[in-house]
Design a protein around this nucleic acid. Structure first.
Length: 485
RNA sequence: GGCCCCAUCGUCUAACGGUUAGGACGGAUGGUUCUCAGCCAUUAAAUCGGGGUUCGAUUCCCCGUGGGGCUACCA
């Protein structure tokens, strides 16, 4: 009765790990941790055409990076190994024999064209397409004859009549009416088993107690329940998670931009922040929105998972990222962003060795604007490069402000020695008095000239880091009009 | 088309029949003895429509509408 909870995440290695899958993995992981149960990773690579070993390795690397450790699975091993479906063919064959012995399967010789035609006809009549069972009626002699002719066949499962009820932990009772399910395929013409068959066998054998997966599998569930019964296994509990949608409300896909975890990893999002944000898509912790994996696990509960599909919001993810970055000690943060500056060819390791303190100060000044490490590039570009780009409107503004910029240049240029923030402020104030300007009118042109940006940290902090000479140099461009418009 | 799921601020969500419908992101406004960003404060912003059930519905039921998923020898 009080068996340990066993859940699994069962992705197909057919591409980069998708955002939606990660949330599914996370919820499984959280539930396992919360229940002090077991989290299994199983690789569903029965689609020989699309699955690759590379994706499989990548998938496990990414799971590891995320910090979602699996208790059983490839690399980890476990009592129900192997955990890759491609290595379990013998097991599926045995189970197929069991079904054959029970007489609940039959070979189907229908061609793809025939099936397509049937489907179209049913659609035209306003019915749900399902296999009509033509080959079920074949006599043993007819089958023998077709086999002899070299006709390929698939194996179909005889779906018993009667409605199927799915007891879903997040959705409640979902009833699938009678006669909706056609006899479905268990093994393809090359004898390889299909998804609906392998999941059931594996989940049953691996003693999975709760199947937590995406809502897109809900309509598969009745078929699987039927298979559990045919194989004399006890079905697990089900929990179907709503789908994560793109900004247009449709299922999140490539055309929405970044949908793979890899891309967020590459951008330099912290896995903790990323998972924290994802966790909030369909679940609301009581103790506030920012919490660690352990804290999440402590309160996670399947029955409090929302039913409606959530739209993925990169803006809030960015905010979440910034919350986590804010907690990183400056020294560590500086080391973390270095590879991104290097990649952008703004700063390299050698420079960092001699100018680490300075780099730290630059990072400190912009750190609150970072949602991910790669943001460092756009936030600090102007510290490392004077190749600033200006919009037409900005160029015009600068031209109009030439007298002001000239005054700045003279004031900064005339300042003896290097300066600090305090001196900078004094100079700006003086120029302001001299030109009779203040506020935005006084600062904005200077900001543009110094940084090429409309926004950024306080100029008082930027100035000493840029250095007096550099500021004078950047002002000079405008004073002498060496600008191409 | 059929089957299934879903429906609270723009977005993520809370409120397990009784609340001034709460929080977060984003927005707006103000403050930070002159800039934008940041930070702090304040603020606007929602129960899809129609019927029931009930003393009372965001909450339960039905219908409609809208959105989504599935409809494979993919998972």
């Amino acid at each position: 009765m009080f068996d340990t909870v066993r859940v699994r995440f069962a992705p197909s290695p057919t591409g980069d790990l998708h955002l939606g899958n990660v949330r599914t993995a996370l919820y499984n992981w959280l539930y396992a941790r919360h229940m002090k149960g077991v989290f299994i990773l199983r690789v569903e690579d029965t689609d020989k055409v699309r699955s690759t070993p590379e994706y499989c390795e990548e998938l496990m690397d990414i799971m590891t990076w995320l910090g979602l450790k699996w208790d059983e699975g490839p690399r980890a091993g476990g009592p129900h190994a192997p955990y890759k479906q491609s290595e379990r063919t013998k097991i599926y064959e045995n189970h197929l024999d069991k079904l054959k012995a029970k007489g609940v399967v039959y070979p189907c010789y229908c061609t793809e064209e025939e099936l397509e035609l049937e489907r179209k006809r049913q659609l035209g009549r306003g019915h749900m397409p399902k296999y009509g069972g033509k080959c079920k009626k074949l006599t043993p002699e007819e089958r023998k004859k077709l086999d002899a002719e070299g006709k390929t066949s698939v194996l179909r499962f005889i779906v018993p009549s009667g409605e199927v009820v799915v007891q879903d932990e997040v959705r409640g009772e979902v009833v699938f009416p009678d006669d909706q399910i056609g006899d479905f395929v268990l093994t393809r013409s090359d004898n390889s088993p299909t998804y609906n068959f392998t999941v059931v066998v594996d989940d049953a054998l691996m003693k999975v107690t709760h199947v937590v997966r995406g809502e897109d599998h809900l309509s598969n569930t009745p078929k699987q329940i039927l298979l559990y019964k045919a194989l004399d296994y006890e079905p697990p509990k089900w929990a179907h998670l709503s789908i994560i949608k793109g900004p247009d409300g449709q299922k999140l896909s490539k055309r929405h931009g970044e949908t793979s975890v890899e891309s967020y990893k590459a951008k330099g999002y912290l896995p903790e922040a990323f998972l924290n944000y994802l966790a909030l898509l369909g679940w609301a912790p009581k103790s506030g929105e920012i919490l660690s994996l352990d804290e999440m696990a402590a309160e996670f509960d399947l029955t409090h998972v929302g039913k409606s599909g959530a739209i993925f919001d990169p803006v809030k993810l960015h905010w979440m990222g910034s919350q986590y970055i804010a907690r990183i000690p400056l020294e560590d943060l500086t080391r973390a962003i270095l590879p991104y500056l290097e990649q952008a060819q703004l700063f390299n390791r050698n420079q960092a060795r001699t100018h680490f303190e300075k780099l730290k100060q630059i990072v400190d000044v912009v750190r609150t604007n970072l949602g991910c490490f790669s943001d460092i590039v756009k936030e600090t570009f102007y510290f490392f490069s004077d190749e600033l780009h200006f919009e037409t409107a900005q160029t015009e503004e600068m031209r109009a402000q030439k007298p002001l910029l000239e005054a700045y240049q003279k004031a900064f240029g005339g300042f003896p020695g290097d300066f600090n923030g305090e001196n900078f402020l004094k100079i700006v104030k003086e120029v302001g008095k001299q030109m009779n300007l203040k506020g935005k009118a006084l600062y904005h042109p200077l900001r543009l000239a110094m940084t090429g940006r409309e926004d950024g940290p306080e100029l008082v902090k930027v100035a000493p880091l840029l250095g007096k000479d550099e500021i004078v140099k950047r002002l000079d461009i405008w004073v002498t009009e060496k600008v191409d418009s």
